[in-house]
Amino acid sequence: MNTETRPSSDASMYAGRSASLSLSDWILPLFIVVTGLIAGIIQPQFFTGDNMLNLARQAVPLLILSLGQAVAIIRGGLDLSLASVMSFAGVAGTMVMIDQGMVMGIMTMLIASVLLGMVSGLIIAWFNTSPLVITLGMLSVAKALALILSGGVPLYDVPADFVDLIGFGSLLGVPNTVWIALLLTVLVTVLLRHTLFGRYVYAIGSNASAAAKSGVNVRFYTVLVYMVSGFCAGVGAVVLTAWTSSAQPVAAPNLTLQSLAAVVLGGVALTGGAGGIRQVFIGVLVLTLLSNVMNMIGVSAYYQTLAVGVVIILAVILDRFRRTDDHH
């Protein structure tokens, strides 16, 4: 039994703090530093400010979707529809934007994706079905809607003011897309750690029947969770349309699985109830860094994919070792 009574450091309210060799606490940060150093030695331009900004910009879409994915996973599920919801929101929002202007367009993207998330959430909550199957279905539905709406053709006439402001604008030398991603990160962190919503999401993920018995409205919060993940997909749509100045009906389809990988890599348990945004952030950083460095060194795309896969599998195995130590 632990007899210490010192006030806890706030970083670890929910994260497991007992393990001394925690993946996200030690190994991954070490991995980031070592990878960075090696890259810097081989290719000195790695450490230039330009590349750092480039790295940050590359991380943005993955980080945004991973935040939504993390909320769904901590609740004890997952969201496979993120990228296709994002594509649909991008197409729909761009069409509105062309007609009604930037603000209406952005609003459309956010509202459309929140609505699709809400539909998934309602079905999952009311029929008590598996999030895997429902979001897989939503993946197809959203993809089809985007293709129908756009006629299968990417929209390239994204209004210039939108592209200039969000896609290529910057503040204090940092691109606006990066600011948006950071802002969303802070928002989700606060949401998860300091609000009732956050506590209930962890409680449901940790033990749904205990949460229900304690008086938590599990259905309501399940719907909210998928609305939040939908919202993240909407923010992703805003950033991606502005950055690529186009709305693709099938935009970055790999991003969903990558977000899943980033969240798991960081050490968030797929069973729910555990993990935090710090871990997600580190997971995203590792994946983005890996692809950035390999691009720079000139590793072929085939080997890049291989390397990412090996890193994810190794990370999960290491994590399993840590967990078994934890439980004896």
Binding site: N207, A210, G273
Partner: peptide, 9 residues
């Protein structure tokens, strides 16, 4: 039977 959320403080 316990109705606690094991991952919560």
């Amino acid at each position: 039977e316990l109705s606690l959320a094991p991952h919560l403080s």
